[in-house]
Amino acid sequence: MIRDITIGQYYPGKSVLHSLDPRVKLIVTFWLIVVIFLCKSFFSLGLIALTAVAAAALSRVPAKMILKSLKPIVIILIFTAILNIFYTQGGETYFSWWKIEITEKGVNTAIFTMIRIVSLVVISSLLTYTTTPTMLTDALERILSPLKVFKIKVHTLAMMMTLALRFIPTLIEEIDRIMNAQKARGADLETGGLVERAKALVPIFIPLMVSAFRRAYELAFAMTCRCYTGGEGRTRMKQMKIALRDIIAIIFCAAITAGVIVLNHFFDAVI
């Protein structure tokens, strides 16, 4: 059933990762992503990869789901690996035929890049697995709120994101309904070439746009009725509080950063 769709890929749970403050989670995730790109040796990258695995275990999200998030990047992984093997030259030659040479440095770089991408995806998908989209937009609003100084309407942006998320399932249902209505009138949506199919979508998107505008209009009315006047003077029911575990998470992150820098210094750089 189309009604049953869940926005994002939140995996409900009660693990430590789930209960961390979303602001801290957001910052820590970006921090770790930066640290991934600071890694130069296999040892420092290994430390990050280990952190990613440990965090995944801590989140209690099934390994199957985490592997599923890696599926879309398999092609990218293979592609970058091949490019690195053939284009990075240096060190001992393992294999040579015609113009192709596979060298030690090429293989190392390929493996290094692959581990780097996988850690990146695992860490960032852990954020979306353990945080609801609403919590994420909320956290983003609060983190970016200092930008108010530059007259950037952070609250309005966050409200737009929340409303967009809220209306995704509604509009999907609407598309389904319009498609059925057009099919009932004899519209052919499944056959024909690319151009014909694109043309067949016009009678679906026009009603969708019209209804989306009508919905927006009514929603604006409803929001006015509920005394919405923008971000000024608004309070929030759900407060975000930094707990001890959040501080530990930040300290842990700092320790990993330090570890990466030290390991970079003592071991040979791969890249």
Binding site: L165, R166, E218, A222, T235, R236
Partner: peptide, 19 residues
Amino acid sequence: DNQIVATIVEDDVAFGPEN
């Protein structure tokens, strides 16, 4: 559908009082 603002029931009910 056109008057519910939030993606969670309790957040929607809280919308008015928050304003």
